[in-house]
Design a protein around this nucleic acid. Structure first.
Lengths: 300, 300
DNA sequence: TATAAGCCATCAATATAATGAATACAAATC
DNA sequence: GATTTGTATTCATTATATTGATGGCTTATA
């Protein structure tokens, strides 16, 4: 039982190929094979189902064990980072999760800001749905990630708030209203993102689950596509204000009545046990948010 | 960087002697010395201040790093336990924390019950103040521990509730009252346990901090001593009902007005990442509490 | 079905790291 | 200043991890 064995195990679970993993962690294929065999025989269990072609799947035990292994490796990283930090050097790896539904500009801006301050940190970006990002944090697949609040089972820090907007074509019959009520929405067809954010966003309006399903007319993965469809009058959509372009061309964005606010936070598994770099990222993002407040990000 | 190096580091921090640690983990003194030197040189920092006589103290870096190391080793234990569990074998080590102020009978009873069910689990008991137990859980020094709720920064499970009682001599002028008010208490002198529990318990009555300090007449470390002093009329005390003997000889226990309930929980660092044995302990304790409910433990 | 390519497990050999035994060295104690 | 106690260091040994070569199995392709 040693670190490279654990590292190999996690990498195998992710990549599914011994040869590939071998290249990735600078070992020979033989070494990787040995490593996993040794780990399995020491633990007395099979961790990965495999055939002559590669890794097929995690066994049940493997599934149970892998979060612990990831947590272990995260602590190793934290230890190395603390040691570097004590020498005045801020470096290490940071796995950062983002959700499509959150402002792409927010992420880019924060990342730039962070990288300028800490150029020696290796930022690895993961993208997934809100639920995925939260799960990834809980299972140590990533170190920090943007999540809508409240987040359950992980620590989180409020970064900024946003407001849910109803977006519709400039010529839409509701376009002149000051705000959109639930009754208004119940008459409309929706064009929404392809992931579960849709249900969450639409749920915030107070619409019935059955109505939500029924009124979801189109789903697209890209927000620009969605807005284009809205512009064509194919339906309306719901988006956080930050997701909208600066110039609303052919579309209008209206608040809900009552208005719905979204809290965007930075999630981390356990603040106390986090790596120095992860803590710095939270701090930096928070500072960034404060600088931006009132500028880009209208706080409720 | 390997497990025995980390193990040696933690053991050295706890025991302070290379030779002693060597015996404890079945290595030679030389090996332990090598291990720490190697770890330090790989991390590029000094972890332990030491002289020719032994370990003097943790360095600053050492203090920062050691919680991460403990968390890491806890994950190793969890991995081993999961592997055993997958083979149907429940075994491993469980470090359990208890507080003096909580019923000694509770602990003993739960431990017996647990050991009967899982004889292959090595239970290691740690005793400390409430705050210590909570800190120990947070820094992975122990796996689970009894804590008063609400506990901050750790996961916890409600086990049982208790009621704070005012204990006074049978001949005390308040002995015939049905309940004791804050006004009553403000006239009295107190005999309390020697640890911080005292302040917490007395704080629950609503007394002013200054009044608490002023009225604390004697402090003793043993509850039997405290009760003996109360019996002698040297003062009154506050204790959870469970701490009192079954037969109240020469003393009376009265509720507060308003009554103050104490919630006793089992704390664990992070349920999701806990070892199988730790999870079982929580379950077992909870089941035990349910069986006892209404019998020994009057629930509010 | 033959052939080639890709991939993993195995074996033996080698490199590397962990450990042990002996010893030197420092500090405290008498 | 001798003795005890305990750590660091040196060197030899042992254990472990890693490699390189090989063979077997699978899949793809003709």
């Amino acid at each position: 039982m040693n670190f490279s064995q654990f590292q190999a195990f996690v990498a195998l679970a992710e990549m599914g190929s011994f040869t590939e993993v071998a290249n990735a962690i600078n070992l020979t294929q033989s070494a990787v094979s040995h490593a996993l065999t040794a780990l399995e025989s020491e633990l007395g269990v099979t961790l990965l189902e495999r055939n002559r072609k590669g890794v097929v799947a995690l066994t049940n035990v493997g599934q149970v064990i892998i979060p612990h292994v990831r947590a272990l490796l995260a602590q190793v990283e934290a230890i190395e980072q603390e040691a570097k930090a004590a020498q005045g050097r801020t470096m290490g790896k940071l796995r950062l999760g983002n959700t499509f539904c959150l402002s792409p500009g927010l992420l880019a801006s924060v990342m730039t800001c962070f990288q300028q301050q800490y150029p020696d940190v290796e930022l690895v970006l993961f993208e997934g749905t809100m639920n995925e990002v939260e799960e990834w944090i809980a299972s140590s697949i990533i170190d920090v990630g943007f999540v809508p609040l409240p987040a359950t089972g992980i620590d989180s820090t409020l970064i900024t708030t946003d407001e849910l907007q109803v977006v519709l074509a400039a010529g839409h019959h509701l376009h002149a209203q000051r705000a959109i009520t639930l009754d208004d929405l119940n008459q409309e067809n929706f064009i929404m993102p392809k992931n579960e954010c849709s249900f969450r966003l639409m749920g915030m309006t107070g619409m019935e689950p059955s109505r939500i399903k029924a009124s979801m007319r189109y789903q697209a993965s890209d927000s620009a596509t969605i807005l284009a469809m809205v512009r064509e009058g194919l339906g309306i959509t719901l988006l956080p204000r930050m997701m909208l372009p600066a110039k609303l061309d052919g579309i209008v964005a209206l608040p809900l009545d009552p208005p719905q606010h979204i809290e965007i936070g930075l999630g981390i598994k356990a603040r106390a046990m986090a790596s120095p770099v992860a803590k710095l990222f939270v701090q930096t993002t928070l500072a960034w948010a404060h600088r931006q407040a009132g500028l880009l990000v209208p706080v409720a």
